[in-house]
Design a protein around this nucleic acid. Structure first.
Length: 165
DNA sequence: TTATTGATTGTTGGT
DNA sequence: ACCAACAATCAATAA
């Protein structure tokens, strides 16, 4: 529980965060790790079936896949996990709505959030980064299982379509 | 009524 | 090395 960072640690967050050697090293470690093993696995996967990865980006409209639950083929396909910023947004949004109940759209919140995000120190961000990293691992695991299942036989449960109004 | 857009940064795959 | 596109969310708007 690091506290009181009188000097420095104010900015210098993006390029070189000289907050603490330990923190800095930790960050480098996890980043490296992600680029070392995790990425490698992903690459191996890509070699085989990159197209079968997450939803095709060329799906003309990305939102179409989101709003509608069509495309039952990839219904179980794990989507990209939210980044640290998104997790921060989740928390920030609550607080923001309390202070600004008048604001309703996420756009305004996103602006305010982004601004604050840049002001946040690495230590505060590392918390969200950690969550994002863990989430990514889960995503990776889900992806492996998804592929395995797909290669296995891809069972299709006849799901009813309760789309009645 | 339904789908899409708009705004934020991070992550990641592709070229 | 750099680029592009997608990840959530909700209100508002277009068709």
């Amino acid at each position: 529980m690091p506290k009181k960072k009188s000097s420095k640690s104010e900015k210098s967050v993006s390029s070189s965060p000289p907050v603490n050697a330990a923190s800095n090293e930790r960050r480098s470690r996890m980043v490296l790790r992600a680029k070392s093993s995790e990425k490698m696995k992903r690459l191996a996967l890509l070699s085989r079936e990159s197209e079968d990865e997450w939803r095709p980006k060329s799906l003309k409209n990305v939102k179409t896949t989101r709003g509608k639950k069509n495309v039952k083929l990839d219904a179980k396909m794990p989507k990209k996990p939210p980044t640290a910023f998104f997790y921060f947004l989740e928390d920030f949004r609550k607080d923001y709505q309390e202070h600004n109940p008048d604001v309703k759209s996420m756009r305004d919140i996103g602006k305010a959030c982004g601004e604050k995000w840049k002001t946040m120190t690495y230590e505060e961000k590392v918390h969200y980064y950690d969550i994002a990293n863990e989430k990514r691992r889960e995503f990776d695991k889900a992806m492996a299982e998804y592929i395995k299942r797909k290669e296995s036989g891809e069972d299709e449960d006849t799901e009813d379509d309760p789309e009645f109004e």
